[in-house]
């Protein structure tokens, strides 16, 4: 028992401390010790990524640690999801998110961060990259039956293109099918409300909370 607990703890630490090269090996060891994949995820991985988020919000972790934590989570989850698949099980997704930086804007650091944190927190993420046209957001979200469309913009000149996507959804009568999240340096909660988005987060860690809250039927502002 002690040993089993130790291995889960080691995996937890590898994620919290952001060691993506060690996390998969520890996940395999945890499986080899007889733990169920779901149990490993619930007991080691989820608390770990939540701890990373807490440390970020407390100001102890900066961007590189946050990302390293998300990367370690991802590498462990690859192993565990493979194991779930082999045993015929699957992990219940927290939700499916189509994400991208809007048209005319090539800045994707913030968007990548949000994508990493969402993935690490159990969302399925379809990343369309940067400079994404409104049509592509809408088409992809419809085809993939996404729950959330998440849009990023860094420039004050391009943030208005977030509104374009919402307008196109309304035009096609698809607005009610998706929750919409926006973010990026110039974007504010007020702006988000004005353009008719459902949620806004100030950081990648907040984005996870906003996405969870939106899908649980709550509001999306923080």
């Amino acid at each position: 028992m002690a040993n089993e607990k130790n291995i889960l703890q080691s995996l937890n630490r590898a994620i919290v401390e952001g060691r993506p090269e060690e996390a998969p090996r520890l996940a395999e060891e945890a499986l080899a010790a007889g733990n169920q994949p779901l149990e490993i995820i619930e007991k080691a991985c989820v608390p770990a990524i939540e701890e990373v988020g807490r440390l970020w919000e407390a100001g102890d972790y900066f961007l590189p640690e946050l990302i390293a934590g998300a990367e370690a989570m991802k590498s462990a989850m690859n192993v565990l999801q493979q194991a779930l698949k082999s045993s015929g099980q699957s992990l219940k997704s927290c939700g499916r998110v189509v994400i991208g930086t809007v048209e005319g804007d090539i800045h994707d650091i913030g968007k990548n961060l949000v994508a990493s944190m969402l993935r690490a927190s159990g969302f399925e993420v379809i990343d369309l990259g940067a400079d994404v046209k409104a049509e592509k957001f809408v088409e992809t979200a419809a085809r993939e039956k996404a729950d959330i469309i998440a849009m990023s913009a860094l420039l004050t000149t391009t943030m208005l293109n977030q509104k374009k996507v919402i307008a196109l959804l309304q035009e096609k009568g698809l607005r009610e099918n998706f929750k919409i999240m926006v973010g990026g340096a110039p974007v504010t909660e007020k702006f988000a409300r004005e353009i008719g988005a459902d949620g806004y987060g100030q950081s990648a860690v907040q984005a996870v909370a906003v996405a969870r809250s939106l899908l649980a039927g709550g509001g999306g502002g923080r």
Binding site: I67, N112, L113
Partner: peptide, 13 residues
Amino acid sequence: NFLVLPHTRKWYR
């Protein structure tokens, strides 16, 4: 994306 490099994490502080 330089943010994900271990080099970044090693030296930034």
